[in-house]
Each structure stands twice: as structure tokens, then as C-alpha cells.
Design a protein around this nucleic acid. Structure first.
Lengths: 268, 268
DNA sequence: GGCGGCGTTCCGGAGAACGGGACGCTGCCC
DNA sequence: GGGCAGCGTCCCGTTCTCCGGAACGCCGCC
């Protein structure tokens, strides 16, 4: 994500005239798409060239091709991600199946708790939000469907990390624990202990670890063969949400979804 | 969409040994992604090879590259669309901006009418659903976020088509009007008249034209400079929804969103 | 008029993509 | 057990597509 393509390409580092590691077109296409940021308008070819480190000519050609294929859209003065990507994104089965089966339970949870409900999956070392239900007419929290946060710093993320086995944990430690707030876990051993606690108790708490003033309770969701599929959480402002009282409710919701997933798997 | 890649590639037609029209990798990648269908499990390499018309070896290599880039995910026994696509799909600005600004109004509409609310944009000659709000605990309608239907056959679609200018209308006629139900408009002149009526009245009705037993009322949404951005609709079962009584409400909602979009554009 | 930035076109060179062919594996059926 | 169909994978010579520097036309601005 933050890897500048120049690194991947072995460019922008003139001091080392490496034979230039072979780069697939697929890599280049990815890097072009990845340089679009949320909350930004269209990008010019020049901007894309700058961000990817690809020569202007190359960007020109690739954008033309990708626009023909529908990956990108040409708008009045620039380029944006294309509607075909929107379409494809909603067909990704990993998120889709989970979401569809979890939705009724999430709705119940949303209605009984009157708070914001999150559903997330683990992607690399990040928690990636798959669905968010907000109570109508409230100041929305900053979380976004399709957005991601480091797993160790959020409730859903820790619930995921706790049940995902050793390798994501190791990767997390290797990446380093950068604190988002004063309360974010910043120590490998503390994280290990926290995850053990989460495994033992079936819920994860987030006490202002991802954003100041925001707290949350989360529980994991499993599929057939006890495979970790995702996690759900209830989130709110510190003075409006009593996380301890909701722990049992969230665990319950997690188990409900797990049950639904297993039943669906049995039918299919 | 339904174009077999073999055609694009000039393959599979041995009788004409054309010099083989040049095909970009981007096209091939697109065709690989496009052969995944909703409600389907993972595909094997062989299946992808079959659907795209690409040689097995080529598919093997491309899938490997695309999986490395995150476009695809390798699962136990096959390949699926990757989580990165999910992520990218949610950043597409055309749908994102519209959705974000329309959402509060859609929620109000959902709450006051207690029915399913749709938000869609025009993509080619199809209506592409960008957001759907369903009343909790109801039998869901078949529509899907990220799904598409021919514009001429749905309420939102006709509202879009009516205000999209001549070219989408011409394309629609060229594609042919395939009826989805006995009530679907199947005549070019009838469609033209219907669209004129919609422009004059500001709302579009769908009386079981896209699915038997399903009716809907729709209205367009415009942005700055009166540019058509999308359309919204309220949908329900024939015996539960009185479309005529809701016409004014939907028009009102459409205008509210239009206003919000203009205000937001003025600020930005 | 000079200039910086934009998007665009051209074209020779080269390296990534291509795909036929062959291999090892599994599961199925005679 | 042998044959076989289908799977994923690997090898490797060919070649076609991608690559990107250079140059161009265009606008808006000091």
C-alpha cells in the first residue's frame, strides 16, 4: 500500500543500477489504481506519473488501455477509478457471503444497541471493514466500508488477530506497532497478553486505542471447521457506550453469525 | 460483458487467420475478472481458461501475477476475486460521492415509506445499483448493490434514461429491447413516449416491468450544471405499494439530494 | 514572448508475455 | 490395475506487446 512503486521497480534509486527486477503489467496496473486516495478528486496523468514513478508516456498508454477496459474512467479533466471496479468489488465472495449472512444479525444488534455496528475481515495485518450499520441521523464515525486500520489498534482487529494464528501476529510485530492514540498498544508482549486474554474471554475491547473518545466491543466470527472468517463490533463514544455491559451481547451475536454460516455451508 | 474474449482476440475462428488484432494485457485481465459470476464459488484455472478462451498456460501465468497483485485470491481449490478489488470498489468516486451525500435523504425516505429504497447510476445502457436500503426483517428483493439491469426495464433506469440525452437512448435501441416480464416496454416508440412523459412529470413508474409483482417509483438526481448523476426509487410488491401516492414524495427526495449535491459542490 | 505544465504522438529496441508441449498428480470408470 | 480425463505446474524458443525517450501542440501565467 505505502510501498512506492519506485521501490518495486528498482527505479528512483539511481545509485544502484540494478538490472531492474522484472515487473509484470499486472503490478503496474495495480500501482496505478493504488495511487488514488479516498476523498480526492480526479488525478491528472502527470500526478499518476509522479506517484507511481512511471514515465509519463507509460502512464498515458496504460491509462488509455485501462479506461478502455473500464478499470478507470476518464472525466472532464483527469482520471478516476471506474465503475467496473465498483461492480467487481461488490462481487468479491469473501466479503459478500459473510456480509449477506451476517446482515440480519447485525441489523438486530444495531436495533437493540442503537449504536454503530461494524463487520470486518483480516487482510494482511489490517482489519478491513466489510459492512457498517449506523444509527440514522447521527454524527458518523470515521470508519468506512472498504477502509482499513492496523489490526492491533482496533477492537475488531484484535479479535481477528487473536484467532488468526501465529503468522499475522508475527507480521504485525515485524511491521512495528505504531500508536494511533496514547492508548494504542505499543509493546509486543502487551499485545501477546491481550490477544491471549481475548481468546480466553471471547471478546475484545477497544478503549480509545484507535481514536480518542471512541470505544468498542468486538467478537470473532467463524465458519465451517472453526475457520476464522471475520469479526463484528459495536462502537460508540466513550461517554455513551458501556462496553462491559455489552460484552455478552456481542459474543452472542458473533456466535449467531457463526451458526448461520455453518448452517449455510451445510446446505450448500 | 457477454462478449466472448475469443471474439475480441480474434481466436476461436480458425477460418479467418486474421493477423490477430492486438490485445492489451489489460483486456485479458479484464476478461479474467469478468468471468466470475455472482453466487458462484471459486473457479478453477480450467474453468477460467474455458470461459475466456485463453490457453491454459496463459491463464496460469496471469492468475499467478494477478494474485500477487491482489486482484485475485487463491483459495483452497481455486481462484476468487480478491479483497483488494473490494477495497478499490468502495473508493470509486462517482458512486461514493453520490452515495455519501444521498444517504441521509435515503434513510429518511426509507423510514417514512417503510419500503426498499434504491440509488442507481447509469452505466452504459444499464442501471447500476449504488445503494440499497431495505426495511429490516423483510424478504429481500432480488436487487443487489453492484448489480445491474437494463435501464429501459426498471424505474430508476427509465428515470436515468429520460435525462441522459440521446446517445444512451440510441444505444439502448440498438441493443434491442428484450422483455423481462410481459409488461416490459418492447417498442422503441413506446419507450420514447414514456421517456418524454417522465421528463415532463419528473417521476418514473415501473409497473411490473422488471419483475412480476414488483412495482416502483423513481426520480432523477442532478448535480451542478444540471448534470444527471443518478436516480433513486422506492420499490415494493404490487399489493403493498401505492405508487401514485408516493410520486410527490420521491420527487421531493430527488430534489433534496440534488440540492445537497449542489451545496457540497459549492463548498468544495 | 518565454515558460512550465498539460496531454498526445511517434518509433526503434527489447524484454515480458505468449502458448505448445510435456509432466506429475488425483479421482473415476471400465 | 490400467486407461483416462482433468487438474495444476514447468520448460523454453518465439514474438508480439509493452516500453519510454524525444519531440510536438496546446493552454494559462508570470
Amino acid at each position: 500500500m505505502d510501498t512506492p512503486l519506485a521501490t518495486v521497480l528498482g527505479r528512483g534509486m539511481p545509485q544502484i543500477p540494478q538490472p531492474r527486477s522484472p515487473v509484470s503489467v499486472s503490478d503496474r496496473m495495480w500501482s496505478v489504481m493504488a495511487c488514488f486516495r479516498l476523498q480526492e478528486g480526479p488525478l491528472t496523468l502527470g500526478a499518476i506519473s509522479l506517484r507511481t514513478g512511471l514515465p509519463k508516456t507509460t502512464v498515458h498508454r496504460m491509462v488509455a488501455q485501462m479506461a478502455r477496459s473500464g478499470f478507470l474512467d476518464r472525466v472532464d479533466d483527469g482520471v478516476t477509478l471506474g465503475m467496473r471496479l465498483f461492480e467487481l468489488g461488490h462481487q468479491v465472495p469473501r466479503s459478500r457471503r459473510l456480509r449477506d449472512l451476517a446482515l440480519p444479525v447485525l441489523e438486530d444488534l444495531q436495533e437493540t444497541t442503537r449504536t454503530t455496528v461494524h463487520l470486518a475481515v483480516l487482510n494482511g495485518t489490517d482489519a478491513l471493514y466489510v459492512e457498517i450499520l449506523r444509527p440514522p441521523r447521527t454524527q458518523p464515525l470515521p470508519s468506512r466500508v472498504g477502509g482499513r486500520l492496523p489490526a492491533y489498534s482496533t477492537g475488531v482487529g484484535k479479535a481477528l488477530l487473536a484467532h488468526a494464528g501465529e503468522s499475522p501476529f508475527a507480521a504485525t510485530c515485524k511491521n512495528g506497532l505504531r500508536p494511533l492514540t496514547p492508548s494504542t498498544i505499543r509493546n509486543e508482549n502487551a499485545l501477546r497478553a491481550e490477544l491471549a486474554w481475548i481468546r480466553a474471554n471471547g471478546v475484545a475491547f477497544d478503549r480509545e486505542e484507535s481514536a480518542v473518545g471512541i470505544v468498542c466491543v468486538a467478537a470473532p466470527v467463524f465458519g465451517a471447521a472453526s475457520k476464522l472468517l471475520g469479526a463484528l463490533s459495536v462502537t460508540g463514544r466513550r461517554n455513551e457506550l458501556e462496553v462491559d455491559r455489552l460484552a455478552a451481547t456481542i459474543r452472542m451475536a458473533g456466535l449467531s453469525i457463526t451458526r448461520r454460516l455453518r448452517d449455510a455451508a451445510a446446505v450448500a
